[in-house]
Structure formats: C-alpha cells, structure tokens
Amino acid sequence: MSDIEIRHVSKAYGKTKALKDVSVAITGAKVYGLLGRNGAGKTTLLNILTNRIFADSGEIRVDGESAMENDRAQAKIFYMTEQTLYPKNMRVRNVFQLTRGFYPSFDLTYAHALAERFQLRPESRIGALSTGYLSIFKLILTLASNAPVMIFDEPVLGLDANHRDLFYRELLARYQAAPNTVILSTHLIEEAAALLEEVIILKEGQVLFARPVDELLQLAYVVSGSQENIDRYAKGKRVIREEALGRYKSITIYQPCSSADQEMLARLGLDQAPARLQELFINLTN
C-alpha cells in the first residue's frame, strides 16, 4: 500500500478544462472507487498520476515523493489502462515475462493460474484478443503485479457475467491476501458498490466527493408512500429525485434524517429506505 496525495492539479486540453484544481488523498490499504461520468476527468487524473501526461499545475506525491518523472514512485503503481500499448503480434505469455522484467514483484505463477481460470490461452497473440479477453489479459497483469497501488480503469469492459463475477472474487481474494491500495474506476457502480470502502466522485473536472461509502450513503435516504403525504413531508427538504407512479410517489432526500423527521415519517405512514450508491451518483452528477 501507499499514500497518494493529489494537490491542486489542473489540466486543460486546449480550451477544455479537464481537471480544475483537484485535491484529494488516497491513503493506505483500501479499495477506492473513482467514479464520474464520461469526460469527468477520471482517466486524465490517472494518466497524470502515472506520468502518461503532465499536469499544467499542481503536484502529486506518492509516499511523500513527487510522482513526476520519479521511477521509484512509479514502480509502486500498476495501472491497467483502457488502451493497450503492447505490440499486436506479441503472445500473452511473452508479455507476462516482459512485465516481470519491469516489475520484479510480478507473480508469474499467479498470472498463469489466473489465465487458466479465465480461460485465456497464454499462446494467444495480443492483436487477436477480443475486447473481453483484452480486458481479462490486462486485469490479470494488474492483479499479478503485486504493486502497492493497483489501478483498474474499466476493468470489466466487455466481460460476460461469469467473468465479471470471477474478477470481483479474485480481486477481493488477492486484496485480502496482501492488502494494498486499489483504485477501481468504473461505470458499473451497482455491481462494484459493495466492494468499495471509499469513493471519489469527479464531476466536470472537480472533486464532488471523497469519503467512505458509508458516510456518503448516510447523506441521503429514499422515502415512498402516497403522493399527498410525500409532498407534505418533502416541504422544505432538499429533494434530488422524484418518481411518481399514479398516486404512489418515491423521492430521494439529500440531507440526514433527524429524529423529528423519523417521527413525521411514522406519523404519515411513509416507508424509508437507504439511498443506493448508483442512484445517489446519478442524481448528484446530473
């Protein structure tokens, strides 16, 4: 595990501001979810962290050292990118070997065991892999890297349900065997929600939230019941979602539920349920 500190990082592509003064800390052995809509700046942030591109301003520190052009800091991070940079005619097993050369802690035996579990043939050429198998190939590299920081960018892209299930299990098994800093950047929030301990939500190049999942979920709740009573209850409260089916109505309230609120809920006969990460995400990033 490692501590990553991102301080006042900004980046623009021409007139488009991809990141605007982003400051966030990623600390210790935890599973982080990096969430945001397309174009929110997730990949830009990860690319800056791993020196693929450079920030216009601000800095990133890994265990106290600058991450910029610093091999010692970069050796701690394994980044599963969306793009593939390996030569197309190279075979899977050759890439495993090669990766071991760059990352001495790379576990070759585990990589081959994973390949077998995912039915990825080590003899396959990279250029011949389907979208799903390309994802599998890259997530195997990342899982087997043994790096203190593992970053997965859309790890389950193109994977079928069985393989997604297998990935989540392998990720947790490996994480438990040697806890490290895991960053999962994904659009499949519902699926990954229970795996995450912390979430960082980006919106239009800024950090909207960076907190433990539990805390985030306590910021909101769902109430449902008859329309009249819901409307009566919602008066003066911050409603971020409304859904009506005939006279039935369900709303998400974005503020903690006080004991006075609890009493009112009981009096009006309304049902209360916790907010779900995905729902909250959709409503906050809309």
Partner: peptide
C-alpha cells in the same frame, strides 16, 4: 474467515 466470506459475497472485507 473474513476472506472466505468477502470473496463468497463479493463484499469489501472492512464491511
């Protein structure tokens, strides 16, 4: 163990 349960249920070990 926590590991077994976490993997079986696909839930973060901290939970």
């Amino acid at each position: 163990s926590t590991t077994e349960v976490a993997v079986a249920l696909k839930v973060n070990p901290a939970t």
